[in-house]
């Protein structure tokens, strides 16, 4: 009976994962391996292809709803970042336009802003996934906030891995493949942002997890009882222990010949924390050095006093 419960939990989390995350690993790998027929991603490898890529983008235009007032208020002092996007068509990768007349230095910033928009949407998806973990919504609300604050960037980096190979990454819901070399060619410190994620992802992908494994692993990350400032650790640890048992069983059944996969996966959580720490420090550096940079209010909330 216990194993049956653990399998039911794995199925439940996999269904939630499929519901809330639009680009699964299965889809991403099909795109990356060219198994999607004529529907190949547009490749961005230099400034010319970056400009040409505009027609391939179909960014989500999220209607203004409940948070309009709040985000407007929050962004009023931030150069109106979110407000600048709402009410108008998204251009390339969420950018208003790209023309040769604009100073080259602004390109990285605009690209960075478009990445922030997608990241904020991804935070919403991760939040919905977290809420689907049995018992999560019964935790103290402050602890739910803490778990998301500390876990969400780790989750996003794990979710980025299936989109990456050693040569580049899918972006814009799999419509575009941006090469690693192009990202490295951006000016500093933007050029330094993605390289650690590529290095991590290439190694992480050798574990060959599938989407059902990923769903459990993401839940384990979210339910970390050692996040700073948690008020009531015990119920979080109890929830995580159940998900860990479910993950261990899942890996035994799904990867019977992959020895020590469970242990190897848990070790990745240590690497993840370092990557997030470095990422947050890089963002803090950007805030100091880039006069025109404004951080999305949701990401600002998450990164403030994080590490």
């Amino acid at each position: 009976p216990e194993a049956a419960d653990l399998r039911a939990l794995a199925r439940h989390l996999y269904e939630a994962y499929l519901k809330y995350f639009p680009l699964t690993k299965a889809k991403a790998r099909a795109i990356l391996s060219g198994k999607t027929g004529d529907n190949m991603p547009f490749v961005i490898h230099d400034m010319k292809s970056l400009m040409e890529g505009e027609q391939f983008i179909n960014c989500k235009q999220v209607p203004i709803q409940e948070l309009q007032h709040q985000t407007s208020t929050l962004t009023a002092g931030l150069g109106g970042f979110a407000g600048a996007h709402s009410g108008s068509e998204y251009g390339f990768l969420g950018m208003s336009s790209i023309s040769g007349e604009e100073p080259p230095d602004t390109l990285e910033l605009r690209f960075f802003h478009s990445c922030q928009s997608r990241s904020a949407e991804a935070v919403r998806e991760v939040t919905e996934f977290a809420k689907s973990i049995p018992g999560f919504s019964d935790l103290d609300l402050n602890d739910q906030v803490t778990l998301l604050k500390y876990g969400v960037i780790e989750v996003l980096i794990i979710m980025m891995s299936p989109l990456m190979n050693k040569d580049g990454t899918l972006i814009s819901y799999g419509q575009i493949f941006m090469t690693r070399e192009f990202l490295k060619s951006l000016r500093k410190p933007f050029s330094q942002m993605m390289e650690p994620k590529f290095e991590f992802s290439v190694k992480f992908n050798t574990l060959e997890l599938d989407d059902s494994d990923m769903a459990l692993f993401l839940a384990v990350i979210i339910l970390s009882g050692d996040r700073p400032g948690l008020l009531n650790v015990k119920p979080i640890e109890q929830l995580q222990e159940t998900v860990l048992h479910s993950l261990e069983l899942q890996l035994k059944l799904n990867h019977p010949v992959s020895l020590q996969l469970f242990a190897k996966l848990l070790q990745k959580m240590t690497d993840l924390r370092q990557i997030v720490t470095d990422h947050v420090h890089l963002i803090q550096l950007l805030k100091k050095t880039e006069v025109d940079m404004c951080l999305h209010p949701l990401l600002q909330e998450i990164m403030k006093d994080l590490y």
């Binding site: 409940e66 309009q68 935070v123 906030v145 400032g229």
Partner: peptide, 21 residues
């Protein structure tokens, strides 16, 4: 803590409908 994280708090409290980010 939730006072300092109003958007996260709202995402946690809201239904699953998309919100403007």
């Amino acid at each position: 803590l939730k006072e300092k994280h109003k958007i996260l708090h709202q995402l946690l409290q809201n239904s699953t409908s998309p919100v403007d980010l």
